[in-house]
Every structure is written in structure tokens, then in C-alpha cells.
Nucleic acid binder design. Structure first.
Lengths: 256, 256
DNA sequence: GAATTATTGAGTCAATATGACACAATAGTA
DNA sequence: TACTATTGTGTCATATTGACTCAATAATTC
């Protein structure tokens, strides 16, 4: 039906507009040469989920992502990167979500607003595994790292969201450095290479990786040495913070 | 205040959650070796805006972008690409927007929901300038192309949105072909080079551009010829649709 | 303490890609 | 017919990439 006036138009539109915006955070960590993702265990004990929540009415979406991450996992002061907005209508009202929420309260209404349609903005972050201490909020039973290649059953489309985050990270590899937030202060070239290999899903030549990474000029080599392996001790490196962030801004390789 | 029960938690949250999701479309065209963007003239005669609108309650966000584009400009069957979600709270209630809406209706309420906080999902598209026939909807006074380097005064943060769209397109150049939707069926290599130069903001060497573009193997060369210039006639090319879309999926250059 | 093993830093080399430039060919114009 | 602007093509020095070699060495084993 065509609106007959601007007031009509606005009134009609009001019936129609979308109610809510939510956040899902995909937090990656790196441990034992494995890329891991941080998940919350819902009160429905077999279902895990990304730490997510709703955006406040007067809140910057970026700020909401940070607030929600802190509330739900305890992680603070993490650099979150927006990567995609998920807008399928059917993703909101979901059997598993209903089940999970019903387990929280018997009086739960099937038409409750949290089950109505919402749009989710996805953020990811890379964190140094050893330096964070995730713990679940009151609504969750656990907050744990999971290997990317053996994820448990996940809420809604959270599996798809994780894959999309990975894909976006992989594309960024080509023009931005990575690793600053994933590795400890000092690390070996092999550690760094493992991250790249995990994200790209293929093996890289050791010598060539070395040469290329050093050519970026973002690494400082320490006066040796990592010890512990039954072999020649590798050099330790650290990121040159200044040069690293300059490369983040300006890009790495030649563009076009 | 801490919630004392799950019901409390949900009730408190309800007061807090964000009400609306909107769309802004950035439509790029290419004409006379100039990149242009499609804008609507608001009823406040000095302000132009991107063709935008609100997402429906049961509507896929991608579908909303297409619907809104069609309603507001008449453009149909355009491939829209999501590029970023803009979430600053202060961007919604704005002096210019209030003025624009007040000019539509005297009874306009300053606290009307359309002035409340909303989050905007940005989409861009590249269209063939000569093949589309944009016309304004009932709410707008005009629908015209504008040169990117001399944009008029724009609503809200639409200027920032356009710049972000450009930036994202520029980054995609490095691993995806471009031009299929911007150029007519047959075009010269110089036409294609102009697009790249506009997006990158710098001149490229003619010979090298030729070599590189042909190496992608996505162009078919026609049996000559463009005529009309006071000089040697250039070859005409067309995109090999099959190879072009294969390259869109798989990427162009080596990645990492 | 010498041999073994796994892994490292450094280097080689052919193949390929890039950036800067040169030059003859030619469609329209003077 | 000469001129001008622009085109297709080619050259060449340099840089980058991919695949590989080899001596060095930290811990372990003999």
C-alpha cells in the first residue's frame, strides 16, 4: 500500500523496522602451534557459543563489542576488529536458542524479544593465549579455548561466523602484519610461521618465509636464544612496535 | 544494578537494546573517465544523501539493501557488496536530518523513532553508467551522479561512508578483478586503466598495466577497433565472463 | 666424551615479476 | 602530405619468488 502522506509513510515504516542489533566476538588465541577460539558453554550443556550480547541504545557498536567481551569472558583491553554483519532473518529464532533460554527460566515466552529478529555485527580479536585469563559470566557454565579443527556443537550460525572471521583474517595477511597480539614478547620465527600456516591452511617454505618476514623490517632480533629443543637453538625475535603499527596502517606489500 | 534473576536480566536488557538497523548504498558509476557516485537530493534543497532506508523485521539485510536501492533510485538487479557497519550513536540524531524531516511535515516530533539511534550497514555496487536510468523516489527531489572529487554537502556521515567504501574497494583490487559492472560490453584497455587509477589515486604505467591485466587471462580481445580519436585505433576488449567470475572467487595474484 | 638426531641460519640459482623506458605504427587533423 | 596524439609491442636492469643445499649446533644417546 502506498503512503498517502509523509506521516503515513513514517507510521507504516514504524511497524516494519528492525528491532535489535547484537554482537558476536570471535577471539583467537595461539597455543602449542594450534589456533584456538574462545567459547562459552551455555546452560544447555551440550551447546557452546561465541561471547555475544546486545548493543545498547546509546552505545557505539565498537564499545558494545568490548563491553560484552569483558562481561562475558573477563577479557579486557582487547583490540577488536569488525569483520562482517550477519543479517539472515531466520538465524534469530532458533530451536537451540529457545531450548537454552527455556532452561534458564520456566516462564520463558516463545515470543520474547530476545527471540525476535536481530542483526549481528561480528568482531574478531587475536589475543596472547598465555596472557589472558578467561572466565565465564553468570549465564554460562564454562569459558574455554577450543581447537579450530575440532569445534563442538555451536549455537545458531556461530560456526559460519567463525569461518567468516578466519577468511577475513586470511585476506588481511596479504597487506597487514599479524602476530603482535598472538605471540609472547619474544618468539621464534617458527612460532610466527605456524600462525601463517594455520591461517592459510598450507605449509610454507621455511627459508623463504624467513627471508620475506625479515624483509618487512618489523622484527628485532634478540641476542639469542631459545633453548629446550634437541637441536640448534633458534634466534628469538620481537616485533618492533613502532614499525609494526606503521605497517598496519600503511600496508605491507606492494598494492596492485 | 545486578540482575537478581534471569527474568530480571531480560527485562533490564529490554530497556537497553538498540532499536533499528538501516542501510546506506554507495553506488559507483564510471563515465568520461571519472568515477561517480549516485546521490539523492533531499527535500532540504542543499543536502544530498546516499540512497538509504530501514531494514524490515523479517527481511534479510542483503535483501533490504536491494529493495531500498530499487525503491529510492529505480536501480534493479544490482550486485551489492556489504563493506562495513557504522555504529556511532551520535550519527543518528542530527541537525540536518531534523531539518530535512521537518521540511517534510510540520508535525514532526523531535523524538520520533526515525531520529532515535540506529546502526547502518553499508553496501556498495559498481554499475555501468550508461545502462542504468536512476530516478528519485517521492521523498527526493533528484537522483543524480556526482563526481567523487567534488561532492556536495552530504547528510550525516555519508561522506565518511563513501570514503570507507572506496577504501574497501581499493583493497579488493589486489586480489579480485574489477570493472565488469562498470564498463560497457566492449571497452579499451585505457578505459580499464582509468578505473584502476581512480581507485588507487595514482597514475600507472600504460605498458605495464597492459601486460599485467592480460596475464590474468580474463579478457577477450576483439577484432579491433575503437575509432574516433585522432590517433592510432586501440583494440577493444571484453571480459570473459566465465574466467572473470572464477577469478572473483579464487583471487587473482598469489596470496602471501 | 663422541656419535646421533633434529632443526637452524645462511646461501644458491633458475624462473618469474616489476618498473622504467623506447620505438615504430597509425587514425584523424591541419 | 606532414603532423600529432596515442597505441601495440618490446627491451632491459632489477627485484621477488620457489625450490633447494649445506654447514652449524643443542640436546640426547651411546
Amino acid at each position: 500500500m502506498k503512503p498517502t502522506s509523509i506521516e503515513d509513510f513514517l507510521r507504516q515504516a514504524h511497524q516494519f523496522y528492525l528491532p535489535a542489533v547484537s554482537i558476536d566476538n570471535v577471539i583467537f588465541g595461539f597455543h602449542e602451534n594450534q589456533l584456538k577460539v574462545l567459547l562459552l558453554k551455555s546452560s544447555d550443556k551440550n551447546v557452546w557459543m561465541l561471547p555475544g550480547g546486545f548493543v545498547g541504545k546509546k552505545e557505539h557498536v565498537d564499545a558494545a563489542a568490548a563491553r560484552i567481551l569483558k562481561i562475558r569472558t573477563g577479557l579486557d583491553a582487547i583490540f577488536l576488529q569488525q569483520f562482517y554483519t550477519f543479517g539472515q532473518p531466520e538465524r534469530s529464532n532458533n530451536r537451540i536458542l529457545v531450548k537454552a533460554l527455556k532452561s534458564l527460566t520456566r516462564k520463558f515466552d516463545k515470543n520474547h524479544w530476545v527471540l525476535q529478529r536481530f542483526v549481528t555485527v561480528g568482531y574478531y580479536a587475536l589475543v596472547e593465549y598465555a596472557n589472558v585469563n578467561p572466565h565465564p559470566d553468570e549465564l554460562s557454565l564454562a569459558c574455554d579455548w577450543h581447537d579450530l579443527d575440532k569445534l563442538p556443537e555451536l549455537l545458531l550460525d556461530h560456526h559460519e561466523i567463525i569461518l567468516k572471521a578466519l577468511e577475513e583474517m586470511r585476506l588481511k595477511l596479504n597487506y597487514q602484519p599479524i602476530g603482535y597480539n598472538l605471540l609472547p614478547k619474544e618468539f621464534t620465527m617458527k612460532n610466527l610461521q605456524s600462525i601463517y600456516e594455520t591461517l592459510l591452511g598450507r605449509k610454507l617454505d621455511r627459508g623463504n618465509f624467513n627471508r620475506k618476514m625479515l624483509s618487512y623490517g618489523i622484527l628485532d632480533r634478540k641476542e639469542k636464544q631459545f633453548s629446550g629443543g634437541a637441536h640448534k637453538a633458534p634466534y628469538l625475535y620481537s616485533f618492533n612496535k613502532k614499525k609494526y603499527f606503521k605497517a598496519l596502517e600503511g600496508g605491507l606489500g606492494r598494492e596492485f
